[in-house]
């Protein structure tokens, strides 16, 4: 990209903004040359495959812990889901006459993320059905990666929740012992008013979906992505911040009825959703202002579902709900073009 840029004379002498000097390497002249060119201005080595595989790597601690926590079975569920996702991707690419996009890792990531949101004892065949749905309906129908409106993995999960609502809310206790049903911290609070110790929730010794239990490991992976700038820090910040503040306000008003904000942060799939799903580059807003609105909206929807809705958990629906608004948010938070006059 860089080498093709031609110097263009600056046509706006009244321009008070300091144009950034961009000297072209080889033909250096005594006075700096001013270049006008369209963005992006920086060459980058980040490509879709690299980002996707990095996200997969960042998920690994939580996945491995899920296997340790819920047993070997989980590995098979992960495999079933990932293989189904990749196979669907291959078949649909063939049908559409496109080059294979398996190597970019997005199908593997979708399959993996989907499994992480499923209960440990969820039947593998249904996990595969969810993965097929996520790729076919969630992504490829819209035109493939980059064109999808909704987060494919969450759409797959929404389909599974609507189809197999009993199986997807049957939780098993951690540590090996098979088929002992238990409740998630959110479930036991909502329906029985029992609090789970924070330390267990933070470390992950609780019932829940395969990849959501350990807040610590998810935060480690998530922070890695934030540092690499593969996820916009504003999204988890605004999402978690809104949940904390709104949850806190309600807790101050009535601590008997509403759980405290720390409980909100570390329970359910909030950490996983905030760091790995809401930050999906395709389905989140592109403007900084837009990401704040997006995060606030997700936090508000989550609190409403958790405290006033019929379901104990609302991370999935809060993200999907705000995904639908992303085109609108992008449109209304578009930065003004320099020099554009106010109407």
């Amino acid at each position: 990209m860089e080498d093709t840029k031609q110097p263009i004379p600056n046509e706006e002498p009244a321009n008070t903004e300091k144009p950034k000097p961009k000297p072209v390497g080889k033909e250096k002249k005594p006075e700096p040359q001013y270049l006008l060119s369209s963005s992006p201005h920086m060459a980058t080595i980040d490509r879709v495959p690299k980002i996707m595989w990095t996200v997969i790597a960042a998920l690994m601690p939580a996945v491995v812990y899920g296997m340790y926590n819920f047993g070997f079975n989980v590995l098979l569920t992960v495999l079933a889901s990932v293989i189904a996702a990749v196979a669907t991707e291959i078949v649909i690419n063939k049908m559409r006459g496109r080059e294979s996009s398996v190597a970019d890792g997005s199908a593997v990531l979708t399959g993996l993320l989907l499994t992480m949101t499923l209960p440990p004892a969820f039947p593998k065949a249904y996990a595969a059905v969810g993965a097929v749905f996520a790729i076919a309906i969630g992504k490829q129908i819209f035109g493939g990666l980059g064109y999808n409106i909704f987060n494919p993995a969450l759409l797959g999960r929404a389909f599974l929740q609507a189809s197999f609502s009993v199986k997807i809310t049957t939780w098993t206790a951690p540590v090996g012992i098979d088929a002992i049903t238990t409740a998630t911290p959110l479930g036991s609070f909502k329906f029985e008013k029992i609090m789970t110790p924070y330390f267990d929730m933070f470390m992950g010794k609780i019932g829940g979906c395969i990849g959501e239990t350990s807040a610590l490991l998810i935060i480690i992976g998530g922070v890695y992505l934030l540092v690499k700038k593969y996820a916009d820090w504003r999204i988890p910040a605004s999402y978690l911040g809104t949940v904390f503040i709104l949850g806190g306000l309600l807790w101050i008003i009535n601590p008997e009825q509403y759980p405290d904000p720390v409980f909100h942060l570390f329970s359910g799939g909030l950490m996983l959703g905030a760091f790995f799903m809401a930050t999906d580059m395709v389905t989140s807003p592109v403007t900084p202002k837009g990401t704040w609105i997006y995060g606030f909206g997700m936090g508000a929807v989550l609190i409403i579902i958790r405290l006033f809705g019929g379901l104990p958990e609302g991370v999935m629906y809060s993200i999907l709900f705000m995904n639908a608004f992303v085109p609108l948010i992008n449109r209304y938070t578009r930065p003004k073009i320099f020099g554009e006059l106010k109407k």
């Binding site: 249904y126 059905v129 309906i137 129908i141 389909f159 609507a162 189809s163 197999f164 609502s165 199986k167």
Partner: peptide, 21 residues
């Protein structure tokens, strides 16, 4: 195991959309 979603409203939209496609 029946896919409950198919007899609910989303099932109608999904199936019709796919049929049109």
């Amino acid at each position: 195991e029946p896919w409950m979603v198919m007899v609910l409203q989303p099932g109608a939209f999904l199936t019709l959309g796919l049929m049109i496609g």
